[in-house]
Amino acid sequence: MKKKKHAGVERLKSRYGLLFVAPFIVGLLLFFVFPLLSSVQYMFSNISFEPGNTVITWTGLENIKYVLFEDPYFINNVVKGFSTFAYSFPLILVVSLVMALILVQKFRGRILFRGISFMTVIIASGVVIEYVLRYQGSDITGAGVETSIMEDMIDVESILTVLGLPTQISGYFQVVLNSIMTVIWNSGIQTLLFISGLQAIPDQMYEVSKVEGATKWEEFWFVTFPMLSKILVLVSAFTVVELFTAKTDRVVSSAYTMMQSQNYHESTAMLWIYFLIVGVVIALLYIPFHKFCLKRWE
């Protein structure tokens, strides 16, 4: 008798739970699952528009063949995307972790520096940063030159001259500095997530490690880092999605150009192929991390 009543309460609660997530389920079906499925369909079809109707005809592997073998830029753009990823990803993680570790400490001016570093969250995801970082300056003749603001900020050539190095290599430094700048501007959300994760680590852990006589370095590697492992996965996932879908990514931007001329099928195929490649690469990177790091820390 008692057990039955208990089961009734559980059922009632689970019904309330379903009530809470019901809109989400509907939304997922309408605005996520079905669009995703139809985009799979578009990949193998040709889309044309008639007044009041969309005509979708099956064309098999046409679009995929076009993207892989006929599009002259696709392979190049994929390589570009991955090379940006290769240096940005580790740098963003390191920069945001260092920022977070500094900003959780208590010191004078902390609020000010936090405010400044969170400002990137507000501006970086937008159109503005593209203008500010890339589209700058013009030479004295008045012809617009695409230079970066970085050149304005740090005079690389004069530094090299002072150090006695040949000025020819200033180009490389420019590229490196430019990347650093982009990385700092893109690590706002990550810093924020890390700070939130760091605050959630219980103080007892640090007290114990102090009692055990751990150095600061050991404390970081054996307490902070393992405790952050899960948030590290979250931040990595977020960073991967951000990097490969940024407005500056060439595959995505060329797909968008195609979309705006209503070339829906080929751009869909292009995006699918791209993100499938990305997915496979990320999975290959994640498996060893999971096996050797996460498992061991647990």
Binding site: F32, Y42, F244, S267, F275
Partner: peptide, 8 residues
């Protein structure tokens, strides 16, 4: 990525 479902 949101780009995957924007066309449909």
């Amino acid at each position: 990525p949101p780009q995957m479902i924007i066309i449909p």
